[in-house]
């Protein structure tokens, strides 16, 4: 579904991504792991077409992704690590993507109700989204992303700031989503979560792709010494 070939991204003198090449399959959960500053968010932003790579090619279903930018932006949705809320009600936040796509008022109402049930926020429709707790905001962000039924959902540390209960709701949503045919790419520094949820995993270190493979294999028999140290918690900075 996604092919990255030699993706390089620089911010001034800093090389955030250094010739990263990856293939990501459809209807799977792909986890990107690595320490802070490894380049996970930059990789996700490029995949979400929020940042353009300096070098390399980004192919989406065999075609150059940037040449189909407008179309793909309606099929790829990203949820940020720190949820950003529109300063309006939960209902309007979740309905935003559907309004852009011209859904009728009745369709929107039905779908928003479904999403609120999915993220367990029934009865929150009229609350101002900015006044919710961090965990509730993250769930609104997930609902807002899911309601548009994206082909590809990109999640940047989706449970980093959540308590166990909120994290479990989000993880359940991710699993249900993949069952419905959506592809999920998620950055996480929670190794247990990567192991629990993902089918394939990529390990980034200082902007370089160190290892990629099936989750079980990478965690059980890492091929690279750095991966092994990272998984074992022996990589200090």
């Amino acid at each position: 579904m996604i092919e990255l070939e030699g993706i390089t991204k620089r911010f001034g003198e800093v090389i955030a991504l250094d010739r990263v090449s990856l293939k990501i399959d459809e209807a799977r959960i792909f986890a990107v792991i690595g320490n802070s500053g490894a380049g996970k968010t930059t990789l996700l932003r490029i995949i979400s077409l929020l940042e353009r790579q300096d070098e390399g090619r980004y192919l989406y279903k065999g075609e150059d992704a940037w040449s189909k930018e407008e179309d793909l932006k309606r099929r790829i949705t990203m949820v940020f690590q720190k949820p950003v809320m529109f300063n309006t009600t939960v209902y309007n936040n979740i309905a935003y993507g559907l309004k852009l796509r011209g859904y009728t008022r009745e369709e929107i109402k039905t779908k928003v109700a479904e999403m609120l049930e999915l993220v367990r926020l029934e009865g929150y429709e009229k609350k101002n989204a900015k006044r919710l707790s961090g965990g509730e905001q993250q769930r609104v962000a997930i609902a807002r992303a899911l309601i548009t039924e994206p082909e590809l959902l990109v999640l940047d540390e989706p449970t980093a700031n959540l308590d166990a209960a909120n994290a479990s709701v989000v993880e359940r949503c991710i699993k249900e989503l993949v069952g419905d045919g959506t592809t999920v790419i998620m950055a996480t520094h929670n190794l247990f979560q990567a192991k629990r949820l993902s089918d394939r995993v990529a390990y980034l270190f200082n902007g370089r792709l160190i290892e990629v493979g099936k989750t079980e294999r990478v965690f059980e028999k890492p091929e690279n010494e750095l991966t092994e140290k990272f998984i074992n918690g022996e990589l200090y900075f």
């Binding site: 932006k73 309606r74 949705t77 950003v84 529109f86």
Partner: peptide, 8 residues
């Protein structure tokens, strides 16, 4: 960015 990720 948020609006763009939602298809705007």
């Amino acid at each position: 960015e948020l609006a763009k990720t939602l298809g705007a």
